[in-house]
Computed example of a mutant assay.
Amino acid sequence: MSNDSVSILQTFRDPLIGLPLSHLWRGAGSAIFLEFGRLASRRRRDGTLGNPRGEFGLMIEWSWRIEDSTSILCGSWSEEPLWETTFDLVRNKSLSELSIVGRLPEIVVALSDNLFVSSFMTAEGDPAWALFDRREAILRTLSVRQGRLELET
């Protein structure tokens, strides 16, 4: 990773350390959303309540897996009834490390109790994840474009 990429990652990583995974929800298809820190309610366009948003959020479109220290517990290709019980294992765990791995940047979230959530794209294109910093009035998003980390505001 370049020095710029390391610096960008640090601006997200440092304030995330110690925050709880306050909410985890499933989006369309196999997409998952991890919400960290204090939650804020949100409304859908039709006025109904939507999933709350955390101070930070991580969207992994596909593919993903949840691991403990010795095995894969569940992944985007697992039987769906296994998903919710595995999601319950990681909810409310504290974020202990955030890292980028691989030649093409994949994200790994290390949680307390030796639990991990990892992205790993299995199709053409870029890894399909995005990290959101919602603490300020201006949303900052870290994602992958053309094989490199990209920061958007």
Score class of each variant (00 low, 15 high):
6 V>F: 12
6 V>C: 07
6 V>E: 12
6 V>G: 07
10 Q>K: 13
11 T>I: 01
11 T>F: 07
12 F>C: 02
13 R>I: 03
13 R>G: 00
13 R>F: 02
13 R>N: 00
13 R>D: 02
14 D>N: 06
14 D>G: 03
15 P>T: 05
16 L>G: 04
18 G>F: 00
18 G>I: 01
19 L>M: 08
19 L>E: 01
21 L>S: 00
21 L>E: 01
21 L>W: 03
22 S>H: 01
23 H>K: 08
23 H>I: 00
26 R>I: 07
30 S>M: 12
33 F>H: 15
36 F>V: 04
36 F>N: 05
37 G>R: 07
37 G>L: 05
38 R>N: 14
38 R>W: 10
39 L>I: 00
39 L>P: 07
40 A>G: 12
43 R>D: 08
43 R>T: 13
44 R>K: 14
45 R>I: 11
46 D>N: 11
46 D>A: 04
47 G>I: 06
48 T>D: 10
48 T>C: 10
49 L>A: 12
51 N>S: 12
51 N>W: 15
51 N>I: 01
51 N>G: 09
52 P>T: 04
53 R>T: 10
53 R>E: 10
55 E>C: 04
56 F>K: 05
57 G>P: 04
57 G>W: 06
58 L>C: 00
59 M>Y: 11
60 I>A: 01
61 E>D: 15
62 W>H: 14
62 W>A: 13
64 W>K: 05
65 R>C: 03
65 R>S: 02
65 R>F: 10
65 R>D: 06
66 I>E: 05
66 I>L: 04
71 S>E: 13
72 I>A: 11
73 L>W: 08
74 C>H: 08
75 G>V: 01
76 S>M: 03
77 W>R: 14
77 W>F: 14
78 S>Y: 01
82 L>C: 11
83 W>G: 05
83 W>L: 11
83 W>V: 00
84 E>L: 09
84 E>G: 08
87 F>Y: 13
87 F>T: 03
91 R>M: 10
91 R>Q: 09
92 N>K: 15
93 K>F: 09
93 K>Q: 14
94 S>D: 10
95 L>K: 04
95 L>R: 06
95 L>S: 01
96 S>F: 09
96 S>C: 11
98 L>I: 05
102 G>D: 02
103 R>P: 14
103 R>N: 15
104 L>E: 14
105 P>Q: 04
107 I>K: 07
107 I>M: 02
107 I>E: 04
109 V>H: 08
109 V>D: 04
110 A>R: 10
112 S>F: 02
113 D>H: 02
115 L>C: 03
115 L>N: 09
116 F>D: 03
116 F>W: 09
117 V>K: 04
122 T>I: 13
